[in-house]
Simulated scan of single mutants.
Amino acid sequence: MSELMDFGYQGKAAVITGSSKGIGRETAEQMVKLGAKVMLVARGEEALKEAAEELREFGDVDYIAQDITESGAGEKIVKAVIEKYGRLDVLVNNAGSSFAKNFEDVELADWEEDIDLKVMAAVKMAKAALPYLKKQGGAILNLTAVMGKTPQPNSLPTTVSRSAGLALTKAMSKDLGQYGVRVNAVCIGLIRSDQIEKRWQKQSPELSWEEFSASKADNIPLGRIGDTSEAANVITFLCSDLASYVSGTAVNIDGGSGHAW
């Protein structure tokens, strides 16, 4: 991110779920470097503590270990943010999973768990945050997946949950715009992650990351797996003042691999 541009994060407070690692952590780092105060949220306290200690090099960071699917989790998290920072300007609903199977193999409990994590947890977080976001016109960013726009075989229940996240984003943007609250989504494609790195080390340790990335990118026009920083760049922009007239949109971060706008 360019230091010559004012993203408007100075003095603002953000909460990012699923932020002990990956895209969430990278987004937190970018926002902190731009002046935001950030509350990290995830289930594992050890990883959260480590991430927070590393990010405090750049600014004001705190954390709360919390399963966001638990009853009252949204209120507990938002209360912690307000007690710590006195305000809330940005909510990034990043927590999720990549659970995907054939329709016949998905149990009813799998459906409930996936929708609870990827849809209802985002709803609960937004409901808890909204009274504070309305005070100065904040931003909500929902992470979804490219397959939510164009579901593929063996992609359930995650593509249904992600499609619901897209509809939620659009509908919320219509309802909350009157308060100056912007709601957007990003649709993630193949992005470097712990899971992919483990596959690299197991399958092709003789290859450099760049070589392995290219070998797995047959259906990606840009010819490689994306980096977490590239996803965080877009998220950080959409939540910033530079995107002050952007709401209700879903941006693909997929190297061109998606089949829908």
Rank of each mutant, 00 (worst) to 15 (best):
L143M: 09
L168D: 02
L141A: 04
L166F: 06
L143Q: 04
D105E: 15
A167R: 12
P157Q: 09
Q136E: 15
T159I: 09
E107P: 08
A139R: 04
S155A: 14
Y132C: 05
E107I: 12
V160S: 13
W111N: 03
T158F: 11
L166W: 03
A100E: 08
D175F: 03
Y132G: 01
A129D: 03
P131R: 04
A126C: 01
A171N: 14
L156R: 12
L117G: 01
K174N: 15
K149A: 10
K124T: 05
M147G: 15
N142A: 05
K135W: 08
S163A: 15
L108P: 04
E104K: 14
M147E: 14
K134R: 12
K170P: 01
A164N: 08
M125K: 03
L156S: 13
T144A: 11
A171L: 13
G177M: 00
D114N: 13
V119L: 11
N154G: 11
A129R: 07
G148L: 09
K149H: 03
V106D: 03
A145G: 11
Q152E: 15
L141W: 11
N154W: 05
P153W: 07
V123Q: 01
T150D: 15
L117W: 04
T158M: 13
L117D: 01
K170A: 08
R162F: 06
L166V: 13
E112G: 00
A100H: 07
K127S: 07
A128N: 03
E112K: 12
K101I: 04
L141D: 05
D114Y: 04
Q136W: 14
A139D: 05
K174A: 15
K101M: 05
S161Q: 08
T144S: 12
D114F: 01
K174S: 13
K101W: 03
S161P: 05
V119S: 03
Q136G: 13
K118G: 06
N154E: 11
E107A: 14
S155P: 13
V123F: 05
A128L: 06
A126Q: 00
K127E: 12
Q152W: 14
L166R: 08
N142V: 05
L133I: 02
E113S: 11
L143D: 01
P153E: 10
V160Y: 12
D114W: 02
A139H: 07
Q152D: 11
L166I: 13
V123I: 10
A167K: 14
D175R: 09
R162E: 10
Q136L: 13
A164F: 01
E107W: 04
P131K: 07
V123S: 00
A109Y: 09
A121P: 04
